[in-house]
Structure formats: C-alpha cells, structure tokens
Design a protein around this nucleic acid. Structure first.
Lengths: 249, 249
DNA sequence: ACTTGGTAGACTGTCTACCAAGTGCCATCA
DNA sequence: TGATGGCACTTGGTAGACAGTCTACCAAGT
C-alpha cells in the first residue's frame, strides 16, 4: 500500500478494554486470503486474476473481491489493468533493492526512537529475544531463527512509538519477505552479533549508535542479497507472463 | 455543483472532442474529490460520511463512493466503523508529531540518495528552485514560498530514485499539510538558508551531510510546530464529534 | 435518578442482475 | 508476412433488494 493503514482498531484503547471479537468484513478476509495465496505461491507472479473466479473460489460475490483487489493494487501486490483484470505483481529487479533501502531508513529511525523511549521492560524483552535467537541460530533451527529475527525487529519498530513508522515498516517487511525469503539463514552468526550490539546501544539510550548499527545491519542484508543474486543464475528472465486463460466451462 | 462528470457517457459529447486520454476510473475521481473536500474543510473533522449522500452529491452510485472511502480509510483520512459508516479522521494530538518524525526519516534518507545519484541537470533544477523560493520569501509571497518549498522537497525525494520513499513521503506530506498549514511561513528566511546548504551538499555528492542537513531541517519544522502549539490555545478541545445526522428529506 | 427493555429508523455489508465499453486473442484476408 | 476485423472476455458502473447492526429515543420498572 502505498498506504497508511490507520484503521479504527489502531487507535489507543484503554488498557483493560476487551472488545468482543466482531466478524470481520468479508473484503478483509478476502484480502488476507489473497495475500496469503500470493506469498505462499499459490497465485504465481504474473498470474491473471479474474474477479468471478476468485469470487467462486472463495465463495463470495464479486463485490468483496473487487474491494480486496483494489487494496492489493494500492499496496503493490497486484497490478490492476482496466478492462483486463488484475495480475499478481512481477517485481522489477531493482525493486527489492529499493525496498531494502526504504527498510533501512525506516528501521534505523525506529531504532533511534526505540533507544530514546526504551523502558526497562522493553530492554528485558529485547535481551530475551537475542538470547533465544542466538540459541536457535547455534542449534541450526532456521525456522526459529527467522521467526525470532522478525519478532526482534518488529518489537523495535513498535518501541519507536510511531504508528507511521510501524505501519510503513510492516508493509515493506511483508513485501520483502515475499520477494526473497532465503537470505536470512545465510548470514546467521554475524546477524545475531549485530543484534546484541544493537540491543546494548538501545539499553544505554545511545540513539545515534543504535541508528547507526541498525543501518549497517540492514545494509549487510542488502549486500547478502546482492551476493546471492550474483551467485545464482537469474531465475527465468523471460518468465512466460500468464495471459488470459480460457475458462474451462 | 460538485458533480463529477463521468466523461463521454454522461453529457452531450462536444463535436470536436478527442478521446486522447481515457477517463479515470470514477473511484479515482471520487477519491480525489473527497480528499480535496477534507483538506479544504468542506467535510469537517469528525463528520459522519454517508455513502448515499456522497453518491448523490457527486452524481455517482454507491459503489465508487464505497471504494474511495475504503482507500481513504486505508490511508488514514477517514475512520471506517463497521455497520455505522465513515467519519472524517480526527487527528490525535501526538499524531502530527509522529508524522513529522516519519517525514524526517524519509526525507533525510531521500536527501542521502539524492546526493548519491544527483545529475547535473537535477542540481541545476534544485538551484533554480532555491533561487525562486528565496525570492518569493523575500517578497513576502507566502503562497509562492509554500508551493516552491513543496516542489523542492518533492524533487529531492524523486531524485532518490526510490519509488517507495517517494510514495511514503508523498502520503505523509499530504497528511501533514492537512493537519497544519500555517507553520511554513513562520520560519521563512532560515528555512531557505537551510535549503541552500542542502542543495550545496547534494551537488557535492556529500551523502552524510545532505542527510544530516535534511534531518535538522525537518526537525526545525517540528520545533516550530511545537512552539506554535504552545503559544496558541488548543482549538476546540471538546469538539462535538458529529454523530448520525437525520437526513433532512 | 438510574437501569432495563423495546422500538424505530438509518446505514452498511453483501448479493444479484444487468449493461456499456475496453482489451486482448485469433482467424481471416491481402 | 503483416494488417484487420470480429469475438469472447472482463472490468466499470448502475440499480435494487435484504439482513444485520448501530444509534437514538421512549417508556416502564426499580
């Protein structure tokens, strides 16, 4: 999304306020179902999405599907072509780079603000995540490592206390994770050493240092991506972009 | 009449009308019309927006209005409450601050990348904008100053070559301009001195310096906002948030 | 005075059906 | 081979219907 989500739920709720779970609007469920299918590859890049097909696939009418598709379009997951339909977005080669650059800026600033506002409690949580993450990494548990890495980063952005940074970072992060999953495990040990230094800087309230470390940290990730890119042969440069498919009925 | 003309379908086609540009989707026009009405205050903060009313006001059906409202919700202009409708967003008091902080991060990074990629042509344009802006400022032309200021900043973000930064910055910027227009003129001369230093840093390709100056520049704006806030009495602390209005028909 | 219960109206969320216009594919034709 | 015209398909937009839910309001009971 090119989009700031500041939905009604995002506002400050009173501490003990427990709202009863309300059934989500259908468009929301459709949106989630579609992003999930895009991320896990059920809907391949470049695939032609037809409203009616998605509608009957999900058991809803066209309307919620349209609304979900438009949101997906705004957030860059699909490209809407008037009169033709939606295609799952095919990332340009410089796109990952730009995403990672944007993430560097957002997370670096988050780290700065996190250092400014860190409470004792937050720092404790950060330390715990570092400990767990390092353990996973040493044990070779890739899944756990990646997950903990995500939790650490998202905790830091949330500690910034800035809704917009959180929002943008989350958006960028999902896109990044879709485009390229496989880098994180590559640079395991070094990554967690950096995390430790970062948490130390935050706990000391050293804003500049925290921001600096986070910037270098994300830059390293970007480098790692480039190295990976250079090593691997480019996968399918002439991807056969899926055109209109005849309906089988 | 606020009616959106739906293009060739609606009225009589002028004889020599050339169809060079295909008509924007209606939802797009509605989206623009609504943001404009929100920014210029026609739709006051907290106002309950009813789909049918907007629809007949703009001369379209419910669907395009719904779609526009959902986008506005995603971008934080209105709050959608399920089963009730949309209300024009009422900004929390810390919201402007957070927006400005996010903008600082985004524009600072943009300045860094702009310094990295600046072409001779870009630098020339920047210099020209500085010249024009300073002239406006000295002549006391507030309108021109504000406009040129906007052009300068948006040119710099575009020079970053990073689509995501451009996108996020544009979103944040529009929101900021809605919340508080009146600060820009307050700090005129200093602002343009900073612009000049910034352009110099960019032209020399000094990334760190450019980023640094831009950060300080936006921070100054934030300070100016705070000073203004402290001086002015808070306007309408207990704004009577508009609830459902009986239709007058 | 405060709560409870009930009622009415308004509006959204969703569905269905329908039509106009734009888009891409394909076969035909030069 | 290359242009062209037809055709199937899909979106964009409209209209109308209906259930569910939200608000406001009123009345009766405690």
């Amino acid at each position: 999304m090119t989009t700031i989500s500041a939905g009604p739920g995002a506002g400050a709720e009173p501490a003990g306020a427990r709202h009863v779970k309300r059934p989500q609007p259908l468009r929301e469920s459709v949106y989630e179902a579609l992003t999930e299918m895009i991320i896990d590859g059920t809907l391949e890049r470049g695939r032609h999405l037809v409203e009616v097909e998605l509608a009957e696939l999900l058991g809803v009418s066209r309307q919620p599907v349209r609304e979900a598709l438009q949101r997906l379009n705004n957030e860059g997951w699909v490209d809407l072509r008037p009169g033709f339909g939606a295609m799952v977005h095919v990332p340009a080669d410089d796109e990952v780079d730009q995403l990672l650059a944007a993430r560097a800026a957002l997370e670096s600033e988050s780290a700065r603000l996190a250092a400014r506002h860190a409470s004792k409690d937050d720092v404790a949580k950060l330390r715990e995540l570092c400990r767990v993450g390092t353990a996973y990494q040493e044990a070779g548990d890739i899944d756990g490592t990646v997950r903990t890495n995500g939790e650490l980063h998202s905790l830091i952005t949330e500690m910034s206390g800035n809704r917009f940074l959180v929002d943008f970072a989350a958006q960028v992060d999902r896109r990044v994770r879709w485009y390229y999953t496989p880098v994180a495990p590559v640079r395991g040990a070094a990554s967690w050493r950096e995390h430790n230094r970062l948490v130390k800087a935050i706990s000391e309230g050293d804003e500049d240092k925290a921001a600096q470390i986070m910037r270098e940290h994300t830059e390293h990730t970007r480098k790692a991506y480039h190295d990976l890119q250079a090593a691997d042969p480019a996968p399918e440069p002439s991807a056969p972009v899926q055109k209109r498919r005849r309906r089988t009925t």
